[in-house]
């Protein structure tokens, strides 16, 4: 599903290298987790895949299926089925949550040559998805993420994911700032979306999210590369011993 080969990325400002030859392959139906110390390039990876400005890809490739992601605009990547759940969801005063979500859904459908969803059908769809995430109607009426608590913002990300139905979901520290109940709700939301046609890349600092969203594969990232790949037990090892041993081993 997602194939990243020898990806080198630097910050456009100052030409500072961040990703230094990253390889990653996520198959359909799989959940991969990426863990790693601060500054290892985890968030950069998610932004580069989503198409954020400010990064220069100097080498390597990233494909979603047979689509060359790096050649596309952010909105084209979204229409191709890529979704990034932001670590810090953005507040947009003046743009209503429902207008935003409906515009996004219909823009994606239009880009794929599918008919637009009517206002009534859309309302029904969102209500149903929102209910599962305990997002109330009032929240949907408000401007995007404005005045939302940390937990509400993250639930709103998952709601967007549920409505847009992407095939490749990247979750960037979706667990940060969540209390136990919110973490459970968010995880349930993610698990409900797991199926054979969809893959997840879960970026996290903590093992506890992976208790809820069980990964098939765990990668350890350091200094812009994947330094170790293993099963769920690798996350437990990090939780127990930290990164020091793994980093030393990779040297």
């Amino acid at each position: 599903m997602l194939e990243i080969r020898n990806l080198h990325v630097e910050l456009e400002e100052g030409a500072k290298p961040i990703l230094k030859g990253l390889d990653l392959s996520v198959g359909a139906g799989q959940v991969h987790a990426i863990m790693g110390p601060n500054g290892s390039g985890k968030s950069t990876l998610s932004y580069v895949l989503a198409g954020r400005e400010g990064y220069a890809v100097t080498e390597g490739s990233a494909h979603l299926g047979d689509i060359d992601l790096l050649a596309l605009e952010p909105e084209e990547r979204a229409a191709a089925g890529l979704f990034l759940a932001f670590q810090y969801p953005v507040e947009i005063p003046g743009v209503g949550n429902m207008v935003f979500l409906r515009t996004a859904l219909n823009a994606q459908r239009k880009a794929r040559g599918e008919p637009e969803v009517s206002a009534a059908d859309f309302l029904k769809l969102v209500r149903q998805k929102a209910q599962a995430l305990r997002i109330d109607a009032e929240m949907l009426k408000r401007p995007v993420n404005v005045g939302f608590s940390g937990g509400e913002k993250k639930r709103n990300e998952i709601l967007q994911m549920a409505v847009l139905e992407p095939r490749m979901c990247i979750l960037d520290e979706t667990d940060s700032g969540l209390d136990v109940d919110a973490m459970r709700l968010v995880s349930e939301g993610v698990n409900a979306l797991r199926d054979q046609g969809r893959a997840f890349l879960v970026i996290t600092h903590y093992q506890r999210l992976l208790d809820h969203i069980a990964p098939d594969v765990v990668h350890i990232m350091a200094d812009g590369r994947i330094i170790k790949t293993g099963g769920p037990e690798l996350a437990l090892e990090v939780e127990r011993n930290g990164y020091a041993d793994l980093l030393a081993e990779a040297q």
Binding site: E73, P74, A78, L84, V90, G94, F100, T103, A104, A107
Partner: peptide, 17 residues
């Protein structure tokens, strides 16, 4: 970028903002 990452084309996103 947030709007575009959800599939809203740049021009349309500019208009929303």
């Amino acid at each position: 970028f947030y709007l575009r990452s959800r599939g809203v084309p740049a021009r349309e996103a500019m208009d929303l903002l």
